[in-house]
Simulated scan of single mutants.
Amino acid sequence: MTRRLFIFGLGFSGLEIAKLARADGWTVAGTCTTEEKARRLREAGIEAHRFDGTAALSADAFGEPSHVVCTIAPGSEGDPALRTCRELLGQARWLGYLSTTGVYGDHEGGWVDETTTPLPTQPRSQQRLAAEQGWRALAAGAGASLHILRLPGIYGPGRSTLERVRAGTAQRIDKPGQVFSRIHVEDLAASAMKAAARETGTEIWNVADDLPASNADVIAYACELLGRPVPPVVPWEEAAPTMSAMARSFYSESRRVRNDKLKRELGVVLRYPTYREGLKAIAAAEG
């Protein structure tokens, strides 16, 4: 059976999924926003096509994939892949959509799972939920399987708390009861490929690690790994006025994300079950 994966958005997450799929013998292609990046990816052996969401891909570029993953964030005009490539997307037998655990909204530090009713409060999360509904409609009309992966904060090599600590910009903010869930990009990719192997119906997976934690705790551990002094805690009331609107929005919600279904039904074994294993591995790889 043909296994061709097309990835809308060969960015941080998309490239990790592509890497894992290619290692497992899949034919992989995908999109990026500029021709320059597409050229660099092609030179690295990855079939890449420019796509900025304003026009549909050609049928030749799409190439009749069996599986499709979309990592692109929607905007005020909706999901760009759905908006411009709906007819092409309906040809695949499995669709994967990378969404966000932000669709659950604020639970004041309480636990959420896949049965929790989405109540997004942030515009970007509301757009994600609308995109989920669009992918559901597409899959239903095409008779394709759809797997929605709801993701918390994604980190990995080159994109973690370690970079902020090294740069001296890490700020330990104390907002009582505030916690965040996370996932290492390698565990995200492994979960996506596990889902791709399960071509049945519509499923939602929370892809998160085992230990929700405050950013203050994560920064302290990153400092320990790097042998740097731990910055003092800054009260939320003092920090908030100096933060960007985007940063403040992240602190406006608090929830703990359950991953029981992911491990029980997909059989995912997290390589980095907490931020400690993940940051330790990144620090060791970077020397």
Rank of each mutant, 00 (worst) to 15 (best):
T27F: 13
E47Y: 10
E43A: 14
N206D: 03
S214F: 10
P231Q: 07
G102E: 09
L279D: 07
W94M: 00
V185F: 04
P231T: 10
I183E: 08
L146H: 03
N206M: 07
T100W: 11
R4D: 06
S214R: 01
D210P: 03
L129D: 02
G278Y: 04
L211V: 10
G30Q: 07
V234G: 12
G102D: 09
N206A: 08
K175H: 15
H67C: 12
A130I: 07
Q178P: 04
G102L: 05
A56S: 14
E16A: 07
F62S: 09
C70Y: 08
L162K: 00
L41N: 03
E16I: 04
A208T: 00
Y251Q: 04
T34Y: 06
V257I: 01
A208V: 03
T202H: 14
E16H: 05
R93F: 04
G90Q: 02
D79R: 09
R136A: 14
T84L: 11
S66M: 03
R3I: 01
E199W: 02
P152E: 12
G30L: 03
L20S: 06
S76P: 10
V230P: 08
M243Y: 11
R39L: 08
K175G: 14
T100V: 07
A131R: 03
R136K: 12
R276I: 14
N259D: 03
L95D: 06
Q178Y: 10
E224F: 11
F51P: 06
G158T: 08
A23G: 15
Y272S: 10
E108T: 13
W26Y: 13
P232Y: 12
L10V: 02
T169V: 07
G227N: 12
E199P: 09
S252H: 09
S249D: 10
V69W: 00
R128Y: 02
A59Q: 11
A55F: 01
S125E: 07
G53C: 04
R93A: 05
W135K: 04
E199F: 03
S191L: 01
A239E: 11
V230F: 14
R164S: 11
P235W: 14
K19V: 03
P232M: 10
K19G: 15
E186H: 05
M243G: 04
A29I: 08
P74L: 09
